[in-house]
Design a binder for these strands. Structure first.
Lengths: 124, 124
DNA sequence: ACACATATGCTACACATGTAACACGAGTCA
DNA sequence: TGACTCGTGTTACATGTGTAGCATATGTGT
């Protein structure tokens, strides 16, 4: 499972709040913030679909994008990788640290907690 | 301040334990682990020096490398960046989370704690 | 003086990512 | 039907990083 880059994560964050969205809709949200042209947004979306970070469907004749993996699932991978490579901490992680993240609702936090502390097989 | 990549971090970790070291000495430690050729190690070291992640000196006619920034300083930047971009947590961070890291001695952990919780000006 | 090991300078190439333009087809409106 | 807009396919180019080779200088032992 390829980890999302910083830009890809920005797009995922939007789609986790509201999906599916079209390239145009995503651009309207992410463009100003990241200072991207529409082309840039489209290229990034396209690559994300190639990497199976996003799934595409057609709604009303327009392509729309949906995250393949849930926020908690994706973040657990990113967080685990970070702790492993940077801080050399394996196994269960101190998930209380993430409780203050505005990214996560209580439910999402609990799921993240579960994912970060379960055994290291995550490919389902 | 450019953040170190994963490979660069691997080299820094060695040099934080013992520095200065020559390219050959670093290769002996990092080569087997990362499965790198000597050339690869050298290229990476060279780029790290370019980016001022490492300082170079000449000892006994051989170039040796030393980290420019301390472990706690560097890690605080990496950790802060991670929490900000991934989890959108700014300001003081829950440093207790890192207490279990094998990377950090008690002293280093305290310094990291201090760096992560002080105001956001870190360029000294 | 010569051979050999080692250190260093320089170059190379592939892939990921950031960032974007151009061209073409389909719908829309005057 | 011609001009426009919008969605999409395709291509492009720079920079960073992974990964490495070749050539040359220099020290060292015989």
């Amino acid at each position: 499972m390829t980890q999302p880059s910083k830009s890809e994560l920005a797009i995922l964050k939007i789609l986790w709040i509201e999906a599916p969205l079209s390239a145009r809709e995503i651009q309207e949200k992410v463009g100003p913030q990241l200072d991207w042209s529409f082309s840039t947004t489209r290229t990034t979306l396209s690559r994300m679909a190639d990497k199976s970070l996003l799934r595409t469907d057609t709604k009303h004749g327009v392509r729309v994008y949906t995250p393949v993996d849930s926020k908690a699932h994706t973040l657990s991978g990113v967080v685990r990788e970070f702790f492993r490579t940077v801080l050399e901490m394996q196994g269960p992680l101190p998930t209380a640290a993430f409780h203050d993240s505005k990214m996560l609702s209580e439910d999402e936090w609990m799921e993240l907690d579960r994912l970060l502390n379960e055994s290291d097989d995550d490919d389902a």
